[in-house]
């Protein structure tokens, strides 16, 4: 077990930021911590890294109690925080060299590592730039390079893609997968469910300082009652159609979005087939048809009664 958090409680005055939070991150996985803004992701990370004192609970990293002076454990960790943390007074190269140098003293080895990190995030053309001169996306990449140059065994990334252009976002997500395939264990937090679904092998969903569900994405979707989301293109929209569809088994809701009929179902067999049969029986012409499995948003919605994204 790489990270083992048990019953972590953190209070900010009256606010309970972490409420008996428990989670386990296994060697070699990409673990996603998914939660809306203010759910306590950053607080959890800060506690795991011993940057914050907490009120209750235990945190073990690589089998040992984590503490501010657990330097041997810190040596194996690379962090990329939510806010970009680099020196404005140092160039791109100097920044990466500085942070790498906190872990690796040997100069020759360090130069090699720094060059690799620059290559990895693709900022070779900007090594002499000062951070202030970089675009938001490049700055994020620099931030990542500073965290991974020393080739850590465990990489913790706190919302590394916030406010990033699509190109840099893909670059970052691909990079995380690559680091993982090269052997690093990854703890990744985000409030974008698509990202988490795309790259994470296991996911914990957080809300109000608590883990409300965890498992692989299939396991998570299996936990809920929601079935697929069906979308059918119609050439005639008639409110009687809605009434008829709602009478079908396993259908929870039906509504029009323009000439699209959107239907939510609960788990069951042949939901799509029954819908199409009904439309055919009423002689309604049908265009394109989609069936989408439930998303993590559906999971979140069903458990908390609110949308993951506001």
């Amino acid at each position: 077990m790489v990270i083992k958090v048990k019953n972590l409680v953190k209070r900010y005055g009256d606010l309970i930021a972490l409420d008996h939070l428990s989670l386990e991150v296994k060697e070699g996985e990409i673990f996603g911590l998914l939660g809306p803004n203010g759910s306590g992701k950053t607080t959890a990370i800060n506690c795991i890294l011993s940057l914050l004192k907490y009120d209750k609970g235990t945190i073990e990293v690589y089998g040992r109690q984590m503490s501010p002076d657990a330097y041997d454990i810190k040596r194996r960790i690379g962090i990329i925080m939510q806010n970009v943390a680099v020196f404005d007074e140092l160039t791109v190269y100097e920044n990466i060299d500085y942070f790498c140098g906190l872990y690796v003293r040997d100069k020759k080895r360090r130069k090699q590592l720094v060059d690799e990190a620059i290559e990895f995030v693709g900022i070779k053309d900007f090594v002499k730039f000062y951070p202030k001169k970089l675009s938001g996306g490049l700055l994020r990449r620099l931030n990542i390079a500073c965290g991974i140059a020393h080739k850590p065994d465990l990489i913790i990334l706190d919302e590394p893609t916030v406010a990033v252009d699509p190109q840099s976002r893909n670059n970052i997500l691909e990079g995380i997968k690559r680091l993982n395939s090269e052997g690093a264990t990854i703890l990744y937090t985000s409030h974008y469910m698509e990202e988490v679904e795309e790259i994470c092998t296991r996911i914990a969903i957080m809300d109000k300082g608590k883990i409300i569900a965890s498992g692989t994405k299939e396991e998570l979707k299996g936990m809920i009652n929601s079935g697929e989301r069906l979308t059918v293109e119609l050439f005639k929209t008639d409110s009687s159609i809605i009434d008829g569809v709602l009478n079908l088994p396993n259908i929870v809701s039906a509504e029009f979005d323009g000439n699209l009929l959107i239907v939510r179902s609960i788990k069951g067999k042949n939901n799509l087939l029954k819908l199409l049969d009904y439309l055919k029986s009423r002689d309604i012409d049908v265009g394109k048809v989609y069936s989408e499995p439930p998303t993590l948003n559906d999971v979140f919605l069903e458990i908390t009664g609110k949308e993951l994204r506001d």
Binding site: L49, R75, I79, A85, Y103
Partner: peptide, 17 residues
Amino acid sequence: VFGKPDLKRRNLCSPLR
């Protein structure tokens, strides 16, 4: 500069005593 919270945290996470 060294007192900026974000930079400070990053330094604190390193194995530098």
